[in-house]
């Protein structure tokens, strides 16, 4: 089947050319992080480091409290992810297995929340959450997560997964005296782990990457999230791109790990999204 041909070579060449603009910013983000001022702060800038300048990594921690930003983002994204998984599992079970009055209408209202852009309702949310005093001190954590504790996307995706179970399973479990609660946590949830992981990966990435809400909400820099911290680092250290890129590279590690190791769950979530 495979034979050498001019067409095949052309495909490699074109793909190689297309890969340059796609891969260069990634390459530069990481390699620039270990480039010294001699390579970066000159014109024209070097594309390959003449020497590895690891000092950027330690300097960036001196310029901004990157470790603290990491903790803040981990708390914010971690709480949002756990909470959305739990609330989505509960709601999905109700939609998939229980007889409820007005179920279709309620499900429609859940889906309707997907059509409301967060940016269109951010002002009243900001007024409410900051008005409740959740924009200062340790309460900032609460303000960061409170609007994002439930997810129509997660509910929808898990409901789809739960509907795959035969209805006999539910009836058998109920007749055997295994109540809904035990059926949910002992049978349904363990068997739905891949779908739950897909929801978890998605929710974590979008929470970790949030920008608008933390930007306007957080007033104490101690509670700044990583994304805002990196953007402030960029504003503060324009003259030292190596330092800025070191911050970028360090902040990318968790999402890079999630994308590389969670790739099959991401694709799973994508196809669920495509069916939506």
């Amino acid at each position: 089947m495979k034979k050498f041909s001019l067409g095949r070579v052309a495909v490699y060449v074109v793909l190689g050319l297309a890969a340059i603009p796609v891969l260069f910013p990634i390459y530069y983000g990481f390699v620039g992080a270990v480039m010294g001022p001699g390579d970066l702060a000159t014109y024209p800038p070097a594309l390959v480091p003449h020497e590895l300048y690891w000092q950027n990594i330690s300097d960036v921690f001196r310029s901004v409290p990157l470790g603290r930003f990491y903790v803040n983002s981990a708390v914010q994204a971690g709480v949002i992810t756990l909470a959305q998984i739990v609330t989505s599992i509960l709601a999905a079970y109700a939609f998939a297995f229980l007889r409820l009055p007005a179920k279709a209408v309620t499900f429609g209202l859940f889906l309707a929340t997907l059509m409301v852009p967060w940016e269109a309702i951010i002002i009243p949310n900001y007024l409410a959450v900051s008005g409740w005093g959740l924009a200062r001190g340790g309460l900032t954590y609460l303000g960061l997560v409170l609007p994002f504790l439930a997810s129509a996307f997660g509910t929808f995706l898990l409901r789809q997964a739960f509907l795959q179970f035969p209805t006999e399973l539910r009836d058998a479990a109920v007749i055997d005296g295994c109540g809904h609660w035990r059926l949910l946590w002992r049978v349904i949830v363990p068997l739905s782990k891949p779908s739950i992981a897909a929801v978890g990966v998605y929710v974590f990435l979008s929470a970790w990457n949030q920008y608008f809400w933390p930007l306007i909400l957080i007033r104490d820099s101690e509670y700044q999230t990583l994304q805002i911290g990196i953007s402030q680092l960029n504003d503060a250290e324009v003259a030292q791109p190596g330092l800025v890129l070191a911050g970028v590279a360090l902040s990318l590690l968790p999402t890079l790990a999630v994308v590389l190791f969670g790739q099959r769950y991401i694709v799973r979530g994508l196809t669920a999204g495509a069916l939506r």
Binding site: Y211, V244, S251
Partner: peptide, 17 residues
């Protein structure tokens, strides 16, 4: 597919540089 790992903020900062 790798750009997917970048957040809007990190990608924007790389482009700013």
């Amino acid at each position: 597919a790798l750009p997917f790992a970048f957040s809007v903020a990190t990608a924007s900062v790389v482009f700013a540089v």
